Structure formats: C-alpha cells, structure tokens
Lab assay of single mutants.
Amino acid sequence: DETGKELVLVLYDYQEKSPREVTIKKGDILTLLNSTNKDWWKIEVNDRQGFVPAAYLKKLD
C-alpha cells in the first residue's frame, strides 16, 4: 500500500559508510520513511531501511 508514502529522487550516488546507512544511486526514486532530522533522512532501498544525507535527496510532489 503506497498511499501516503512520500517519494524522493536521488540526486547523487552515495555509498553507505555504516550499517545504519544504505547505498543509493543517482536517478533512483525511493520511499521516504522519515525526514524529521534535517541532515539525515531514513529511506527504503530494496527492502532495506537506512539513512542517507538529506542533501542527496529531493522530495517529489
């Protein structure tokens, strides 16, 4: 059920640097789980959840 889920576009590649982070690729469109922290957003990638720098993402309307 995708209702109410926010999507984000990945602006730059990011390689995870800790187990709490996930790797993302430029151009991916992913589900945003939590954006309350202005610097690190929690997203879902391939059934994995983790954090990436918010500056690497853009919210889609």
Rank of each mutant, 00 (worst) to 15 (best):
D1V: 14
D1Y: 12
D1M: 12
E2R: 08
E2K: 12
T3L: 13
T3F: 12
G4R: 15
G4L: 14
G4I: 14
K5L: 11
E6I: 15
E6R: 14
L7G: 03
L7D: 04
L7E: 07
V8W: 06
L9V: 10
L11S: 02
Y12P: 00
Y12S: 09
Y12I: 08
Y12M: 13
D13N: 09
D13K: 03
D13L: 02
D13T: 06
Q15V: 14
Q15E: 14
Q15P: 05
E16W: 07
E16V: 07
K17Q: 15
K17P: 04
K17N: 10
S18P: 04
S18Q: 09
S18L: 08
P19Q: 09
P19E: 11
R20Q: 12
R20C: 13
R20W: 15
E21R: 04
V22Y: 03
T23G: 04
T23Q: 03
K26F: 05
K26S: 07
K26Y: 05
K26C: 07
G27R: 02
I29M: 06
I29K: 05
I29F: 05
L30F: 09
L30S: 03
L32R: 01
L33K: 05
T36F: 09
T36V: 10
T36H: 13
N37R: 08
N37P: 04
N37V: 05
K38T: 10
K38I: 10
K38D: 09
K38Y: 08
W40A: 02
W41R: 00
W41V: 02
W41C: 01
K42H: 08
K42N: 05
I43Y: 01
I43K: 00
I43M: 01
I43E: 00
E44Y: 06
E44R: 11
V45D: 08
N46A: 14
D47A: 09
D47E: 13
R48A: 06
Q49Y: 07
Q49N: 08
G50Q: 03
F51P: 00
F51K: 02
F51C: 10
V52R: 01
V52E: 00
P53T: 01
A54N: 03
A55K: 14
A55G: 10
A55R: 15
A55Q: 11
Y56T: 08
K58P: 01
K59W: 06
D61I: 11
